[in-house]
Design a binder for these strands. Structure first.
Lengths: 181, 181
DNA sequence: TTCGCCATGTAATACGTTACATGATTGG
DNA sequence: CCAATCATGTAACGTATTACATGGCGAA
């Protein structure tokens, strides 16, 4: 999966592993996450497969950068992936729900403390989505008007991130109320 | 993670790998998923670690069953896991959102077809959650009244599954409308 | 001078998925 | 007779996570 995300971003412009990590964290992080180690190793593999090529860029008083670009094979692989529709639902893995499922015998105070912390984290995420990422999309839309159509789709996925966090907070609030009794 | 789910279920009663897979599929499947292969191999590992013990049960005209039970060490490990609160958010991995993010250049008809299918799948899931799993919880609550307190927590996690699917469908409908233009 | 950011990677491990493999019983 | 369900597992592969490892620059 991470392979296609990297191909997708390189489709916009050549980038380094570091750039890709930054881009990922500021765009699709609401629904996909990767560590830099995975990105660097995947890029190496992709180069071995001929999907990307890299060139090392030396700059004085600046760290060296390995810039990756798509090859025709990479572009083809990316398009082939986009063309074959998903036919299944993505499985969810929610550790908090697992813990709550088994929490009947725990001290309610400890359960509540855990839920309060999660509420804070999700509230923070929601605020981020509402401001930061929206800004990033708008800025990109102005800087790169040829990506206006892309920005429409980015906004759609951002809506999902916002919807998800709103739903989560709503559920947390109801759950907290019920446990507080 | 799957280790703690297995410990959690075995805390209720001794079970086989098959039983655990069935139980998992009919209870925490809204927020955790595992293949039978992973369950069987994890049980073996857990036995090696001394968290569970198994005994082979032979029955005529019935397949043999390997029944696992918790040891004191297993119970202790499970309680220790429950006691240390989660301090981070579970990362989301939503392939559909990734695909949509990069879908600006795709044929809108193909994108819509993909979204229609997802809508069907999620609608089906929501119906399942509303009927089947609720029934399972009620039935269990009647059969095992000592688990009444547990059932409260099971219902809370079911609410999350329902909330999630409702949010997802809502988002899908809005997204479809916008792409249909 | 210390912290954070830029920038790169490797190694080891852990976890998850797909495919392979078998065989009995029950119900339509 | 065929499909589904019960019941168990292994092997190979693929993906993800944690930890290890390095070093320069700029700002407070």
């Amino acid at each position: 999966m991470i392979k296609y995300i990297l191909l997708g971003f390189l489709n916009y412009q050549p980038m380094t592993g570091y750039d890709l990590k930054q881009t990922l964290d500021h765009s699709v992080s609401h629904f996909w996450h990767a560590y830099h180690s995975q990105i660097y190793t995947t890029l190496r593999q992709m180069e071995a497969e001929g999907l990307v090529v890299s060139e090392f860029v030396y700059a004085e008083s600046q760290p060296d950068r390995r810039v990756y670009s798509l090859t025709d094979a990479g572009r083809a692989e990316f398009n082939a992936w986009l063309e074959q529709s998903l036919t299944e639902m993505s499985p969810i893995k929610e550790e908090l729900a697992v813990r709550l499922f088994f929490s009947a015998r725990r001290d309610p105070k400890s359960v509540l403390a855990e839920l309060y912390l999660q509420r804070e984290l999700h509230q923070k995420k929601l605020n981020e989505y509402r401001i930061m990422t929206k800004d990033a999309i708008e800025k990109n839309a102005i800087l790169a008007p040829q990506l206006a159509q892309d920005a429409v789709f980015w906004r759609l996925t951002l809506n999902m991130g916002i919807g998800y966090e709103e739903m989560y907070l709503d559920w947390l609030n109801k759950t907290i109320l019920q446990i507080e009794r």
